[in-house]
């Protein structure tokens, strides 16, 4: 079995609708799932590129936001689990990398 990429990869069909007050809706047109996300969630989404593992994303969030809670790593892991469950992100098979 091929190894998978280091970090989660955003589904290219997913739509990020940035609404007002920096809140956003993530929408997956393939399964009609929609997820309301806060500004931290938006930053996490934008950080996903397949090469970043969760600790690196956490580090970026800590740099970007003040008063980041101690549970941030757990929170981001859970958020990415939800994104994975609803088809917003996946993991690329290493064998598929060009």
């Amino acid at each position: 079995m091929d190894a998978i990429s280091n970090g989660p990869v955003p589904n290219p069909v997913a739509v990020l609708r940035e609404e007002f007050d920096d809140w956003a809706v993530l929408f997956n047109p393939d399964n009609a799932k929609a997820l309301g996300i806060n500004p931290t969630g938006v930053a996490v989404w934008k950080a996903l590129n397949g090469s970043k593992e969760i600790p690196e994303i956490v580090s970026e969030i800590k740099d970007k936001f003040s008063n980041v809670p101690e549970t941030v790593e757990k929170d981001i892991s859970e958020f990415i689990e939800v994104l994975t469950r609803d088809g917003f992100v996946g993991y690329e098979l290493a064998g598929n990398k060009g």
Binding site: R17, E19, V25
Partner: peptide
């Protein structure tokens, strides 16, 4: 009302 940046 606050207005979204584009229609849904």
């Amino acid at each position: 009302p606050k207005v979204m940046r584009s229609p849904r």
